[in-house]
């Protein structure tokens, strides 16, 4: 861990109960019809708090991606309750959900999903431009964010001119540039080598963690579990257990409901 991330974790105060920003209760989701119907989420409970980095881990097909898609207001659930930042997502229409995502979420994808023709600053500026900022102002703010992430010299490079780790840092900048309350990361280190993955997670932790922001990370990569404040294990469409991350120096298994009321 870098010195900055150590400082960050030491300075990082435990979140209050009132900082719960994502509340999922009995979430159900199925795909397909009739005999081909697959129940992916079977009454899942999950919570995420501001100021915490919550990892969602589990085997392939256990429903992690479906759950973060629902939390990220990209997918609707079939049953249960989901409240994000106090808002009931099930009551929102598609247009409202898009606005909600733009205002409150930052996304980091496994494959980065940067626009290949745009340079780093332009890519990172997209959420601001989408919110109506002028291109120049948005790119200025994005460049500052890239500078913080150590890409100050690469702001004018297109993704093809950047390494995988650098591209993921651009994706982090894009996810954080509009100061969202929630950041969702889908396998952020899956496309990176071990060293780059560690570095990206350190930067993510340093740049993203804020007492008002929740970070949810879906991952298979147990080498980065040490960055978690809380680890939710998923199996067969439910959260099987939630444990404190190593950063909290506690490995006491807790039930989902005990973890966050």
């Amino acid at each position: 861990m870098t010195s900055t991330s150590m400082q960050h974790s030491q300075m990082h105060a435990p979140p209050a109960e009132s900082d719960v920003v994502v509340v999922c209760r009995s979430i159900k989701k199925s795909f397909g019809e009739g005999q081909a119907r697959v129940r992916v989420l079977r009454g899942t409970d999950f919570d995420a708090k501001a100021g915490e980095m919550t990892f969602l881990v589990g085997p392939s097909g256990c429903g992690k991606t479906t759950l973060i898609s629902i939390i990220g207001a990209i997918l609707s659930c079939d049953g249960g309750d989901i409240r994000v930042l106090g808002d009931d997502l099930r009551r929102m229409r598609n247009g409202q959900l898009a606005d909600f995502r733009l205002d409150n979420f930052g996304f980091i994808f496994q494959q980065f999903n940067l626009l290949p023709a745009l340079n780093a600053a332009e890519n990172a500026a997209i959420p601001l431009v989408a919110r109506g900022y002028s291109t120049r102002k948005a790119e200025g703010i994005a460049s500052e964010m890239l500078e913080k992430l150590g890409l100050g010299e690469h702001t004018r490079k297109i993704p093809a001119q950047l390494s995988g780790g650098q591209q993921q840092r651009v994706a982090i900048a894009r996810a954080l540039v509009h100061s969202p309350r929630i950041v969702i990361c889908d396998e952020p280190t899956a496309s990176l080598d071990a060293a780059s993955g560690q570095r990206v997670m350190e930067l993510l932790r340093d740049a993203a963690m804020d007492h008002e922001r929740a970070v949810i990370v879906v991952t298979h990569d147990d080498r980065i579990f040490r960055f978690a404040d809380r680890i939710a294990h998923m199996a067969d469409g439910t959260i099987s257990k939630v444990e404190r991350g190593k950063l909290e120096s506690s490995k006491t298994p807790v039930t989902p409901k005990d973890a966050i009321p």
């Binding site: 898009a98 995502r101 733009l102 979420f105 996304f107 959420p127 989408a130 894009r174």
Partner: peptide
């Protein structure tokens, strides 16, 4: 070839209209 990028833009919050 850019569909994934369009999907990403949609996920970020761009509406179909845009």
């Amino acid at each position: 070839e850019n569909l994934k990028q369009y999907a990403a833009l949609k996920a970020i919050g761009l509406k179909n209209r845009r």
